[in-house]
């Protein structure tokens, strides 16, 4: 774990409201595993007060990248950072995906920004073994399709308005896939909670191991403050340090909205 002043190498808009930031962070880049995150202090001073957590989206050499969507004041400030600015970065944090090397078919399910950690995972896996399902509201909001094509992995798309690929929710598309394929070894999913809930419940029903990457407002990011808990099967779980990647059967999904 490192706390460093990371230099911003670029901070660019990819589509409306969505940005990619690249940081010079050698220690973090060396140690990061897919599914882990960095906790970033958006600006000096104390308003906004807390750091903000971001999945590590890519590591390359001594650089890391994050993908983010502007959703509030914190990310708004972040989007205005310039190349060359330094930003207080803590990481890599949390538990990543746990993938055993003998798995032959892994389905990565990414709803919207959920592609952020799953792209990193896809880069690390044997490309022949994975299928990526990408979901978005419409064609224009599909993130990262070009880069995925360059990765040379199989990608299937669902859009809510049907402007590209399957018309409907990603979870429905996933359901069709499950009915047609019995040979899935593992599902890894990231996206909004309602989507994750459906993906997790379907995977559990079809007895396919499933790992989900969850998001929650965080305090410290390192397991101290107990602020980012969610309901697990027997006790509360800390998203920052017990997760953010959990086995789907650890979570009490009925109580997630």
């Amino acid at each position: 774990m490192y706390q460093i002043k990371a230099k911003i190498l670029f901070n660019e808009k990819i589509i409306s409201g969505h940005y990619k930031m690249c940081l010079y962070a050698p220690g973090i880049a060396r140690e990061a595993k897919p599914g882990q995150f960095v906790h970033i202090r958006i600006k000096d001073g104390y308003d906004p007060l807390l750091r903000r957590p971001f999945s590590i989206h890519r590591c390359e050499g001594e650089k890391i990248e994050i993908l983010y969507k502007v959703v509030g004041r914190g990310t708004e400030f972040l989007s205005r950072k310039k190349t060359g600015n330094e930003i207080d970065t803590l990481g890599p944090l949390g538990q990543g995906f746990k993938i055993s090397p003998d798995l032959k078919k892994i389905v990565l399910v990414a709803g919207g920004m959920g592609i952020a950690p799953l792209y990193f995972l896809a880069e690390k896996l044997n490309r022949e073994n994975i299928l990526i399902l990408l979901g978005a509201e419409s064609k224009g909001k599909i993130l990262y399709l070009e880069n995925l094509k360059n990765l040379n992995v199989k990608v299937q798309i669902a859009t809510e308005d049907g402007s590209q690929g399957y018309k409907g929710l990603l979870s429905e598309f996933f359901f069709h896939l499950l009915k047609e394929n019995s040979q899935i070894d593992l599902v890894c999913a990231c996206g909004p909670i309602p989507m994750l809930k459906k993906i997790a419940q379907l995977s559990l029903k079809y007895k396919i191991p499933c790992q989900v990457s969850l998001e929650q407002r965080m305090g410290c990011g390192i397991g101290v403050c107990l602020g980012c808990t969610i309901k697990g099967k027997s006790s509360y779980l800390r998203v920052c340090s017990d997760g953010p990647v959990f086995q789907a059967n650890q979570i009490r999904w009925k109580e997630e909205r």
Partner: peptide
Amino acid sequence: GNPPPRLTETPAGLLN
């Protein structure tokens, strides 16, 4: 402990 959410940020403050 208490049911989540357990934290929310307020101006220069943290409500827990």
